[in-house]
Simulated assay, not measured.
Amino acid sequence: MSTASLSSAPVSQARRYTPLTLARWMFAVAALVTLIVAVGGITRLTESGLSITDWRPVTGTLPPLSEAQWQAEFEAYQQIGEYMHEAGPRGMTLDDYKFIYFWEWVHRLLGRVIGLALLVPLVFFWAKGAIPQGYKPRFVALFALVCLQGAFGWFMVRSGLNEEMTDVSHFWLSIHLLTALFTLGGLVWTARDLLVLHRNPGARPARLTGLTLAVLAIVFVQLLLGAWVAGLNAGLASDSWPLMSGQFLPQFNWDAGFFYTLTHEPFLLHWLHRWWAWVAVIALIVLARAVKRAGDRRASVYIHSAFGTMVLLGIATVMSGVALWLAVAHQVVGALLVAAFAWGAHRLGTSEAAPVSEPARP
């Protein structure tokens, strides 16, 4: 075999895995992240998050396989405040414990699957020379975010593993959830960059525009408030809409101090979350209209559909007294809104980026 044919072998292998292949990989991982957000919502609403009291990244993949192992896990759970002050007095049985253990175990298992779904193809594509120039650091960063997400999840669980606490810290819960949503946005953004690169090998990555950053800040506040509402069970503060306790602006107790009340008072956080939503809606409408003017009507429609559905589900969740399926749907649509936002924001960044000239054809 000639030297020329040997040197062309890696090139021909790389061409088998185009940017379109990598984009599909990113979208598949994004779908898994959306799924874990849904399971995380179920885990939170069924109070399953503290059911596994240790963190074993490798050996913890398998659930208890014998009655003795189940008893040992249950006894460990009985040592924490959630069992002592809530689950125990309600008369929790071993079968009840197995139910909440299942959801936390599935949640952790999905986290491991997502890590592998990023790492294994990354190693493969890297070895094949199929990763476009400049994308290796981004893929490594996405994998690091997934690992960080797992670590944050454990810090969240650990915050509730004592005799005083009956729940996890809502601060750690918000960090855990927002990291997942940030990762989801990064996956979608990278997938869109790869799709553009597939169509135009000389295209530059999209950039964040001023409008995108402004809307992102507003949406971030709403997502943060939503995470705190979930962590403090503040959705139960009112089951009426639009009024709370018969008033648009109820009285709040500020005796604990401004900062503490702003970050810990369930009634106030519930009120802020339901009304800051309309600020986010206005910002998203502005963004969606800009995306439509940039030539992507479909992304604009998806943004409108996502925030419209999310608002309706939020109202229904409140009025249902936080029905599990409605609350989970509300959270999942929140993840879909992040994906739609990333798509639209990417389109704005692409339309304003000046692509380099395409390479000359032979």
Rank of each mutant, 00 (worst) to 15 (best):
E104F: 07
Y97L: 11
I80E: 05
L94Q: 13
G60W: 05
P64F: 07
Q78W: 12
S51R: 01
L109Q: 05
L65Q: 14
G115V: 04
L94D: 05
E86D: 14
D96A: 09
Q79D: 06
H107F: 10
I52C: 07
V33C: 04
D54A: 13
M92D: 08
L119Q: 06
I114Q: 02
P63A: 15
V58E: 05
F74R: 10
S51M: 08
T59W: 12
H107Q: 14
G91N: 05
V29C: 05
Y83S: 13
V120N: 11
E73W: 02
L35H: 03
M84V: 15
G111T: 02
K98R: 15
W55Y: 12
S66E: 14
A68N: 15
L45Y: 00
F125T: 01
F102W: 14
V58A: 11
M84S: 12
L110F: 06
R24A: 12
W55K: 10
R112M: 09
E47C: 07
G40W: 00
G60V: 07
R44S: 09
Y77P: 01
L35G: 08
R24Q: 12
L119Y: 06
I100H: 00
S66Q: 09
F74I: 12
L50W: 01
D96H: 15
Y77A: 07
V123A: 15
V106W: 09
G111R: 00
L122W: 11
M84P: 10
F27T: 08
V33R: 00
A127V: 05
E82G: 06
F74Q: 09
T93F: 11
W55P: 02
E86R: 15
M92L: 14
L118W: 00
A31E: 02
Q78R: 13
W105T: 01
V113P: 07
A38F: 06
G115Q: 03
V58M: 12
P57G: 08
Y101W: 13
V113E: 00
Y101R: 03
Q78T: 10
I36R: 02
I42S: 11
G41A: 08
E86C: 04
L32C: 10
W105V: 01
A117T: 06
T34K: 06
A38W: 00
T53M: 10
P63N: 13
G81D: 06
T61A: 10
I42Q: 09
F125Y: 15
T43M: 06
V39Y: 00
L35T: 08
Q69P: 06
A31C: 13
G81Q: 14
L122M: 07
G49F: 02
Y101Q: 07
W70S: 05
I42K: 04
P64V: 05
E73L: 03
D96V: 09
V120R: 08
K98P: 03
D96L: 14
A127R: 15
G40M: 03
M26P: 05
E104K: 03
R24G: 11
T43N: 09
P89W: 04
A87R: 04
L65W: 04
I114P: 00
L50H: 03
E82S: 15
M26V: 07
A68E: 14
L109G: 06
Q71W: 09
G40Y: 00
L110T: 10
V113H: 03
L45R: 00
